[in-house]
């Protein structure tokens, strides 16, 4: 296993990998919050329909 400085390129390599992880994160996690929001919208919609 080689060192973490990546032969002087560490700054670039690690930032590229962390940006990738970040983009993956903001693609994945908001979907779950969106689902909660959508379920709430549907529940309100159903209530309104019943009234």
């Amino acid at each position: 296993m080689n060192n973490f400085s990546m032969g002087g390129y560490g700054y670039y390599v690690w930032s590229a990998y962390f940006i990738t992880l970040f983009v993956f994160g903001i693609n994945l996690f908001p979907i779950f919050f969106e689902k909660i929001k959508i379920k709430k919208i549907i529940r309100e919609h159903l209530l309104k329909k019943r009234l």
């Binding site: 080689n2 990546m6 032969g7 002087g8 390129y9 560490g10 670039y12 390599v13 590229a16 990998y17 990738t20």
Partner: peptide
């Protein structure tokens, strides 16, 4: 390119 080429794995 030394270790700099490792960006290929995300790019």
């Amino acid at each position: 390119q030394g270790d700099g080429f490792r960006i290929i794995y995300v790019h």
